[in-house]
Design a protein around this nucleic acid. Structure first.
Length: 104
DNA sequence: TCCATGACATCAA
DNA sequence: ATTGATGCCATGG
């Protein structure tokens, strides 16, 4: 059923989001790639927009490829600073320093 | 099935 | 940095 497929996406996405270490940020494309759907970055965003509805996830650690935070969500900047992530602007993080790296 | 939308990604100016 | 165009794909009407 359609419903099941939808929940699968949500489950995979949220699983990855939950794995983002504190002090790091990930991009939508990055997450999409991790769940095997590198073309579905938009879906990631859609799910995260409802992430609070599904549970408590560090959705504030997810930004777009330019490091820009979610439009219309000003608090995200404060949350990130609270995590110790340096912000370039009120709406941008420093991906150079804080992007989530699995391999090092 | 077609059309519009979206917390996106890439590339070209 | 900003704008425009293109791709990509699930979702909803």
């Amino acid at each position: 059923m359609k419903r099941v497929l939808e929940e699968n996406l949500i489950y995979e996405i949220l699983s990855v989001v939950e794995e983002i270490p504190k002090g790091s940020v990930a991009t939508y494309g990055q997450i999409a790639r991790l769940i095997g759907r590198d073309k579905n970055a938009r879906l990631v965003g859609k799910v995260l927009s409802m992430a609070e509805y599904y549970g408590e996830y560090p959705c504030h650690r997810v930004v777009n490829h330019a490091g820009r935070l979610a439009p219309g969500w000003i608090e995200q900047g404060d949350l990130l600073r609270n995590e110790g992530i340096p912000l370039k602007d009120e709406t941008h993080v420093d991906l150079k320093k804080c992007q989530w790296q699995f391999c090092l």
